[in-house]
Amino acid sequence: MGLHARPAMQFVDLANQFTSEVRVLKGGDEPVEADGKSVMQMIVLEATQGTPLTIEANGDDADEAVKQLAELFESKFGEE
């Protein structure tokens, strides 16, 4: 599942509901990090379908944030 405009916005909308800092890391040859609350950065991350991503959160509601954001990925952004 590639992180195109619509899913990126869904992800960011959800991330912004938490007070915790959210970061998304892309591994591979050139590891890149994005602010999970910025649409622009999430798109520039160029996370095409099948790219392994790591979601990190830091703050009071960090656990809940990571849980819900991961679920969003698992549900394939509610599409299908």
Partner: peptide, 16 residues
């Protein structure tokens, strides 16, 4: 119409 949602999303980006 959804195309503009993307534009709005970008403009609301605090980091930007």
């Amino acid at each position: 119409g959804g195309i503009f949602d993307f534009h709005i999303g970008i403009l609301r980006d605090k980091l930007l």
